[in-house]
């Protein structure tokens, strides 16, 4: 009797911080922006509930074009990160010598510990008109005058892939690391070509890592703010920039909250779709890190 009371008490004590945290900082605030997004201003300090903010969004091509552009670029960045990251993860997990493996892995992680801001700043120093790359190209005689390499979509994509590729490599590495080489051998012995073995053995084995990596990189890209703005300049038309603009610059919280809900809804939908299509669960993929 005493024991069960004590364990009930400790359950309540342990539950309290969790409930306060998730309730006050996650659930209620999300409901809060949902509520504000449904509020339309009809007069000074007078509001009505309705879908007007969403209708405004649909009627203004600039807004939904920005969302589509952000979505499309995020998917592109995710695909590129997978393409760039997979060989790297495979090399470190399967090809590198046991001894150099840890060092290579750590080397991959170093940029992770440097702020986004520093990384973006590094790209600026490299790529701007008076930057290092432009200077080097001039010295090499390949171009005659300074060339501006910033403020275009290619640079934004390169910068974004740079920011997120590590989040792709880490889950890929941990799944590939668990793969037994005898699986590959068996595949070859049964007459599989390199392509077949890769497609039928390596990829299915790495699937949880691929899904986890893609989800994390997609979320990070769609939610990124610094890289598109600093590398893309004022006209980067990134959706988070719109949100910031509505909230902080124009003080239009109603439409800012609407954009927030739309971005969250959209990214959650993509994540859900990804998990659904591959039969994975959130706890299995993202939480493994």
């Amino acid at each position: 009797m005493f024991r069960s009371d004590a364990s009930k008490l400790s359950l309540i004590l342990l539950m309290t911080p969790f409930v306060l945290w998730i309730g006050l900082l996650i659930v209620l605030p999300q409901l809060g922006i949902g509520y504000i997004s449904l509020r339309e201003k009809v007069g000074p300090r007078e509001y009505e509930l309705g879908l007007a903010n969403y209708i405004d969004f649909i009627n203004e091509p600039i807004y939904w074009n920005t969302l589509l552009r952000t979505a499309w670029m995020s998917i592109l960045v995710t695909a590129l990160a997978l393409l760039v990251g997979f060989p790297v993860a495979y090399y470190i997990a399967k090809i590198a010598q046991q001894r150099s493996r840890a060092a290579l892995f750590l080397l991959c992680l170093i940029p992770l510990w440097v702020s986004d801001l520093v990384r973006a700043f590094g790209w600026i120093v490299l790529l701007r008109e008076t930057g290092v790359v432009s200077g080097m190209l001039q010295t090499a005689g390949l171009i005659s005058g300074p060339v501006e390499l910033l403020y275009n979509d290619v640079t934004v994509v390169i910068g974004l892939v740079y920011t997120v590729v590590l989040f792709m490599i880490v889950p890929l590495f941990s799944t590939l690391d668990g793969m037994d080489n005898s699986l590959l051998e068996a595949g070859y012995n049964l007459g599989g070509s390199r392509v077949t073995v890769f497609r039928r053995i390596v990829v299915p084995y790495a699937m949880p890592g691929i899904v986890a990596g893609c989800i994390i990189t997609f979320m990070l890209t769609a939610g990124s703010y610094l890289t598109p703005i600093l590398l893309g300049g004022k006209n980067s038309s990134w959706f988070t920039e719109q949100i910031y603009d509505q909230f902080i610059t124009r003080y239009n919280w109603e439409s800012g909250a609407t954009f927030g809900v739309l971005l969250l809804g959209f990214t959650s939908f993509v994540v859900w779709l990804g998990l659904r299509l591959t039969g994975q669960s959130l706890a299995n993929t993202v939480a493994k890190e």
């Binding site: 996650i26 605030p29 994390i216 939610g223 994540v271």
Partner: peptide, 27 residues
């Protein structure tokens, strides 16, 4: 379900976490 809820903050974009807390606090 609560365990999933515990992981959710990692997949909410940081900007959205920021504005939602800003909005809720000011409400």
């Amino acid at each position: 379900a609560l365990h999933v809820l515990m992981i959710v903050p990692l997949v909410i974009p940081g900007v959205i976490l920021g504005i939602s807390i800003l909005v809720f606090a000011s409400i």
